[in-house]
């Protein structure tokens, strides 16, 4: 067996060329593609890691925000509760004030109504008393219902101060008429008696006339031109009613 050195040399050259060819057309392109894919994967991995890190940071931020929200919620609840308590207290105080006011108003209304009722009762009582008095006095004979007052009128005129008596006389001296009003007409004799005694007590030349007003019940009224002197039961009852109404519940 003999070695062909030319063949051996050619095979050496062939192998070197084949190494270059495969390096050029196989290893380098394939490895470049694999490296590119690996780089892309590493890039995606790094991006995923960074995104995961960002997600973790966002999660931490959200947790912090949620914790802050819980604190704010608790503070808001406490604030609202406090405001609610204050509002409730204010409403209660206002309600108490309003109730107190209503109570006072009710009391005042009740007192006013009670006063009105008492007033009406008094008035009714006075009316009843006047009615009773008029009925009782109606049972008394007519001359007695007038004559009894003549003494009193005469005494009153006599007791008047001289100034007032002269003033009344002056009203009659100029042609004025003194009108004597009674509840029932006076008899002629009684009229003469009244005329004489009134002239003697007030003015001797006075003209005296007589009228009737059943509403006087009893007694008489002396009506001067510019003055009036009442001595009737009606006047007494009216004065009593006026006195009662003016003083009210003080009595």
């Amino acid at each position: 067996m003999r070695l062909e050195w030319s063949t051996l040399t050619l095979q050496l050259v062939n192998f070197a060329i084949l190494v270059w060819l495969l390096q050029r057309f196989l290893y380098r392109p394939v490895l470049r593609t694999i490296d590119a894919r690996r780089a892309a994967l590493l890039g995606q991995q790094a991006q995923a890691a960074s995104e995961a890190e960002a997600a973790k940071r966002q999660l931490a931020d959200l947790e912090a925000q949620r914790a802050g929200l819980a604190g704010e919620r608790a503070a808001a609840l406490a604030r609202t509760e406090e405001e609610g308590r204050a509002l409730l207290a204010a409403r209660q105080a206002q309600a108490q004030r309003e109730a107190q006011g209503l109570l006072e108003e009710g009391r005042r209304t009740l007192a006013r109504e009670r006063e009105l009722a008492q007033e009406e009762l008094r008035s009714a009582a006075l009316d009843l008393a006047a009615d009773i008095a008029s009925r009782v006095l109606a049972q008394i004979p007519e001359p007695l219902r007038v004559q009894a007052w003549l003494e009193r009128i005469e005494g009153h005129l006599t007791a008047l101060p001289r100034e007032e008596l002269r003033e009344l006389s002056d009203q009659l001296s100029g042609g004025g008429t003194l009108r004597v009003v009674t509840a029932a007409p006076l008899a002629a004799g009684a009229q003469e008696q009244w005329r004489a005694r009134l002239r003697a007590a007030a003015a001797p030349e006075a003209s005296v006339a007589f009228d009737t007003e059943p509403g006087l019940i009893a007694g008489a009224e002396l009506r001067f031109p510019h003055a009036r002197l009442g001595f009737s039961v009606q006047g007494a009852i009216a004065a009593l009613q006026q006195e009662v109404r003016s003083h009210g519940p003080d009595r």
Binding site: E4, S6, T7, L10, Q11, N14, I17, L18, L21, L22, F25, L26
Partner: peptide
């Protein structure tokens, strides 16, 4: 003066197949 033997020619064929296939 260089004899080209059959293994060399076969090797060229293999080189061609491998190179073209790789390309």
């Amino acid at each position: 003066p260089v004899p080209v033997t059959r293994p060399v020619v076969t090797t060229w064929g293999i080189m061609a197949v491998l190179a073209i296939g790789s390309w």
